[in-house]
Amino acid sequence: MDTLFSLLPDLSPFTMLMLAVAGIFIGAAAHFTFSGPGAAAERLAHLTKTYGDPGRRIDLRTARDHTPEGVFKALLPDTKTERAQIQLQLRRAGFDSPHAMRNFFLIRFLAAIAGPLIVMSMYGLHQAAALPDPFASYFQGMSPLGAAQLAAITVAVCFYTPTIWLNRKVKARKMQIEQGFPNALDLLQISTEAGMGFDTSMTRVGQVLAEVCPPISEEFLMCQAEILAGRDRQEALFDMAERTGVEEAMSFAQLISQSMEFGTSISSALNAYAKEMRETREMKAVEQANKLPVKMSGVMASMMLPALFLITLGPTILRYMQVFGD
Rank of each mutant, 00 (worst) to 15 (best):
R83E: 04
D232L: 06
T33R: 15
A301C: 07
R319L: 15
P37S: 07
F159V: 11
R61Q: 13
G55M: 12
P77F: 04
L228R: 14
E178L: 13
L237R: 08
E193I: 02
H126D: 13
A307M: 12
V155N: 01
Q258A: 08
G52Q: 05
K80I: 09
G27N: 11
A136I: 04
V155R: 01
T62C: 10
E247I: 04
M18Q: 12
Y138C: 04
L47H: 09
I311G: 01
T50C: 12
L47G: 05
V286H: 07
D199W: 06
R83A: 06
A63R: 15
I190G: 04
A20V: 08
A241M: 01
A147N: 02
M18C: 10
Y51D: 13
I311R: 07
G115E: 03
A63Y: 09
T62G: 04
K171I: 13
G245E: 00
Q234W: 02
P98I: 08
Y160E: 12
R83H: 08
I190K: 03
G36Y: 05
A156L: 15
E276D: 14
F34Q: 06
R204N: 10
E218P: 00
V157L: 11
A129H: 12
N103E: 13
G36R: 02
F324Y: 13
A28W: 11
S257K: 06
F104I: 09
M101T: 02
T200Y: 03
Y320A: 09
L11F: 14
A184E: 01
R168Q: 13
Q189M: 10
F14L: 14
L166M: 05
A249N: 06
I153M: 07
N103D: 13
D239V: 00
L310D: 01
A229K: 05
S268A: 14
C223L: 02
L313G: 04
D53C: 08
M296H: 01
N103Y: 08
Y51E: 12
K291N: 08
E219F: 00
G146S: 12
Q179H: 14
F25Q: 09
G55N: 11
